[in-house]
Simulated scan of single mutants.
Amino acid sequence: MAAATTPEENAAAAAAVDAITETTNRFTVNTDAAGAGPLKLDDVDGNVYSCKRCGTLLAVADDIVSKSFHCKNGKAYLFDNVVNVTVGEKEDRMTITGMYSVSDIFCVGCGEIVGWKYEAAHERSQKYKEGKFVLERYQLLGAE
């Protein structure tokens, strides 16, 4: 049987939940609907990319848009979708192909930066990248 709580305790608990919600609303977490942890894709055979550090599933090969991207540490892949990441704060970055508003993405399993998300492209010819994700190949296991 649960202990009875006072109205003051209920108000304090509600305020704590509001504070946590306010803090976490700055990020997007792609996990399963029940919130039980990282998504697992049982129906995908071998063509998956996982975090090199902890093994958490991040993407499937079918979602690759391009393998011709580069980061400061080598190859990177552009994906339509990734899972099991948190999206950090948006910032403007200048790259070889122009100025973008991007957000770093972090593995939900270990917190490692695994790439970035294109939030907005300032060059008209680069608009196709908006809403897509780049995973740095050196941070990934799998598929190849």
Rank of each mutant, 00 (worst) to 15 (best):
K129R: 14
G115K: 11
R93W: 06
T97G: 04
S101A: 15
G46Q: 03
A76L: 03
A36T: 12
F106A: 11
G115D: 01
V108N: 11
D80M: 04
Q139T: 00
E123V: 11
A12F: 03
C110N: 01
Y77R: 12
L135P: 08
F106R: 06
S103N: 14
T95I: 04
E144T: 05
I20T: 09
C107K: 00
K117L: 09
P7C: 01
K117Q: 15
S50N: 14
Y138G: 00
L78K: 09
N81G: 00
I64A: 12
F69E: 03
L57P: 00
Y100L: 01
M94D: 14
E89M: 05
Y128F: 15
N10K: 10
D32A: 03
N25Y: 07
K127P: 04
G131N: 05
Y138M: 00
S66K: 09
I113V: 14
A120I: 12
E8D: 14
V65E: 10
V114K: 07
W116E: 04
L57H: 05
F106K: 01
F106Y: 15
A36G: 15
Q126A: 10
V60F: 07
T86Y: 08
R137L: 04
V29C: 10
N84I: 04
A15C: 02
L57D: 07
T21S: 10
I113H: 02
L39W: 06
T86S: 15
A33I: 12
G88Q: 11
M99E: 06
V108Q: 03
L41R: 14
N73W: 08
Q139W: 01
T24M: 06
S101Y: 01
E9W: 03
K75Y: 01
M1D: 06
A16M: 10
E9F: 10
V108E: 10
D32R: 09
G74K: 00
E9A: 15
V85H: 10
N10R: 09
M99C: 09
R93A: 08
G98A: 11
K127Y: 04
K127F: 05
S125Y: 04
V17R: 09
F133R: 00
E136H: 10
Q139V: 05
A12M: 13
I113F: 00
V114H: 04
G142H: 11
K129L: 07
A36L: 12
G37Y: 08
D92V: 14
T6Q: 02
T56E: 08
G35Q: 02
M99R: 14
E8R: 11
H70S: 11
D45R: 07
L39T: 09
G37W: 10
P7Q: 02
